[in-house]
């Protein structure tokens, strides 16, 4: 297991794209928003938490089709499936690697991008926390989608169509935490719901992902 995560991280660093691409995409989305809605600070302040959450979510989505595709193409996935690792463990590790290479950099970058959208001062902490708690759920759910579409030639678009509806609850609770935090309101309820969602998906969804991966391998 440890070898698998080490290998995936090494590959992400060396092959490039892993860290950089998602972050650059996040930056571009956040840059484009003011062009679309106008430069008024009051409006930007109001929508900043939501924009940052949606930007992070889309950046997360961008790299999902690589979670299994590369291992599928070069045959590693077959070999991993015959190795003494449970399939559930493999998909969990894959989700973890995706989070470390995509989710975590987004979490760290989000406060900096908050500056661009004049996020109010109390919002930074809650934005950071909500993303820190919520992005693992995005990676785990995304890994399920990636496992569903791994054998398909043009799976990328289908992957988005399958995964985005599944992202709805995470987005709602995550953005709610950030928004309430920015407005100085109580955040306990959505924060707990978000944490519950993350832990729940992390505990249960790998079984579904492993099942669909087994189906796709045969």
């Amino acid at each position: 297991m440890r070898a698998l995560i080490a290998r995936d991280l090494a590959l992400a660093v060396r092959a490039g794209g892993g860290f950089g691409l998602g972050l650059a995409f996040f930056l571009i989305v956040v840059t484009l928003i003011p062009f679309g809605v106008g430069p008024e600070t009051t409006l930007l302040t109001e929508i900043a938490p939501g924009i940052l959450w949606i930007g992070a979510l889309l950046a997360c989505l961008l790299s999902l089709d690589r979670v299994f595709a590369l291992d599928w193409e070069d045959g590693s996935l077959d070999l991993l499936a015959t190795a003494p690792l449970p399939m559930e463990g493999i998909v969990t590790i894959k989700a973890l690697a995706h989070w470390l290479t995509t989710g975590l950099p987004l979490v760290l970058a989000a406060p900096a991008l908050g500056l661009l959208l004049s996020l109010p001062a109390p919002g930074y902490l809650w934005l950071f926390l909500s993303l820190l708690i919520g992005t693992p759920a995005l990676s785990v759910i995304g890994t399920f989608g990636a496992a569903l579409t791994v054998g398909l030639k043009r799976g990328g678009l289908l992957l988005s169509l399958l995964v985005l509806p599944l992202y709805v609850p995470t987005l709602i609770f995550g953005a709610e935490v950030a928004r309430r935090g920015a407005d100085g309101l109580a955040v306990e309820t959505p924060l707990l719901m978000l944490a519950g969602l993350s832990f729940g998906t992390l505990a249960l969804l790998p079984f579904a992902s492993a099942a669909v991966l087994r189906v796709n391998l045969r």
Partner: peptide, 18 residues
């Protein structure tokens, strides 16, 4: 069983040793 199929499952970004 140790299985080896048509594809070698080699990561081109890693060295032989890795």
């Amino acid at each position: 069983i140790a299985y080896a199929g048509h594809q070698d499952g080699i990561k081109t970004a890693l060295s032989v040793e890795e």
